[in-house]
C-alpha cells in the first residue's frame, strides 16, 4: 500500500506547486487543440508527463525531506532534476505545445519576452551551455556553498530550481528535434561532442568524492541524518551517484543522437539512389 503521507510536501513551496500545475495544465489544454499531424502521440505525452512528475516528486513530497538530510539522496534528487527529468521532457519534444502558446502571446507580451530570448541565445551557445551545465554541479557541490545551501531555505530552493532550469536548457539543446541542415539548431556532431565533454568533469568530481578520505560534506553531520547511516557510506553512495549515472546519461544521449544522425545521413542517400533509378 502506498503511504499517502509520503505524497505530502515536506516543505511547501507555492512557486513550485504553481509552476508544475501550470506546466501540466498548459500541456493538457494545448494537446487536444493541436492539429492531428503535429499532436504528440501517446508515447511522447507519457514521456513528458513522467519527466515532469519525477521532478515534482523529488521537490514536493517526502523525498525532499530525505534529500535534505541524506547526502546520497540529495545526489539522487539532483540526478533527476538535472539529468533524468529534463532528459525525458526534452526527448518528448514539447515543441508543438510551445508553438501553440507562443502563437497566443500578444505583440506587447512578445516585446516583454525579448530580453529572455536574448538570454536564451547566450546560455544556449555551444560553449556556454556545457560550461554552465558542469559549472552548476561544481558550484553547488563546492563544500562551503553546499553547506550554506543546506542551511538556508532560500538558497536550497534556488539551488534546486537552478538545476532543473539548467537541465531543461541543456537537454533541450541536445535533443532539439529541428534539423541542423535546415534550421539554426546545433549540428549532431557538436551535440555528441558536448555530451562526451560534459561527462568527463562529472566523472572526475564523482570519483573524487568516492575516493576522498575525510568528510567533504559535513553539513549532514551537523543537521542530523534522516536515519542512522555511517557518514562514509552516505558520502560514498553520493559520490557514486555523481559519477556513474550522469556518465551513463551522456552515453545514452550520444547513442540517441547517433541514431538520429544515421537516419539523417540515409535520407539524402535514399533520395539520390531513387533519382539515379536504383531501388535501395
Amino acid at each position: 500500500m502506498i503511504d499517502l503521507d509520503f505524497l505530502a510536501p515536506y516543505d511547501v513551496s507555492p512557486v513550485t506547486l504553481m509552476a508544475f500545475a501550470l506546466t501540466l495544465l498548459g500541456y493538457g489544454y494545448a494537446l487536444p487543440r493541436l492539429s492531428p499531424d503535429e499532436r504528440p502521440g501517446r508515447l511522447r505525452v507519457f514521456t513528458f508527463v513522467i519527466g515532469v512528475m519525477l521532478c515534482y516528486v523529488v521537490m514536493q513530497t517526502r523525498f525532499d525531506y530525505y534529500a535534505q538530510y541524506m547526502f546520497f539522496i540529495h545526489r539522487g534528487q539532483h540526478l533527476i532534476l538535472h539529468h533524468i527529468g529534463p532528459f525525458l521532457i526534452a526527448l518528448s519534444n514539447p515543441l508543438p505545445i510551445l508553438r501553440f502558446w507562443h502563437a497566443r502571446v500578444s505583440p506587447a507580451g512578445r516585446r516583454w519576452l525579448r530580453p529572455f530570448a536574448v538570454a536564451y541565445r547566450i546560455v544556449q551557445h555551444p560553449v556556454v551551455a556545457p560550461v554552465l551545465f558542469v559549472g552548476l554541479i561544481y558550484f553547488w557541490l563546492w563544500p562551503p556553498v553546499h553547506f550554506d545551501a543546506m542551511l538556508s531555505r532560500q538558497l536550497y530552493w534556488t539551488m534546486n530550481w537552478s538545476m532543473l532550469i539548467d537541465g531543461l536548457l541543456f537537454w533541450w539543446l541536445m535533443f532539439d528535434p529541428r534539423s541542423p541542415a535546415t534550421t539554426a539548431a546545433l549540428g549532431h556532431g557538436k551535440r555528441i561532442l558536448i555530451l562526451a565533454v560534459v561527462a568527463i568533469p562529472q566523472m572526475i568530481l564523482g570519483a573524487s568524492i568516492v575516493f576522498s578520505r575525510g568528510m567533504v560534506y559535513d553539513v549532514y553531520e551537523v543537521c542530523g541524518r534522516a536515519w542512522p547511516m555511517a557518514p562514509e557510506t552516505d558520502q560514498l553512495l553520493g559520490g557514486l551517484l555523481t559519477w556513474i549515472p550522469p556518465a551513463m546519461m551522456s552515453i545514452l544521449g550520444i547513442l540517441l543522437l547517433l541514431r538520429r544522425a544515421m537516419h539523417a545521413d540515409e535520407q539524402p542517400a535514399i533520395r539520390s539512389a531513387i533519382a539515379e533509378g536504383n531501388t535501395p
Binding site: Y65, Q68, Y69, M150, L151, S152, R153, Y156, E221, V222, C223, G224, R225, A226, W227, P228
Partner: peptide, 23 residues
C-alpha cells in the same frame, strides 16, 4: 532550522537512540 531527528528501534528494555543535530 533545517535539522531533523529520528528514533531507532527500541531494545528489549524499551530504550532507544534518538538521532538529532549536533550543532
Amino acid at each position: 532550522y533545517r535539522t531533523t531527528f529520528g528514533y531507532d528501534e527500541p531494545d528489549e528494555h524499551g530504550n532507544y537512540d534518538v538521532s538529532h543535530s549536533s550543532a
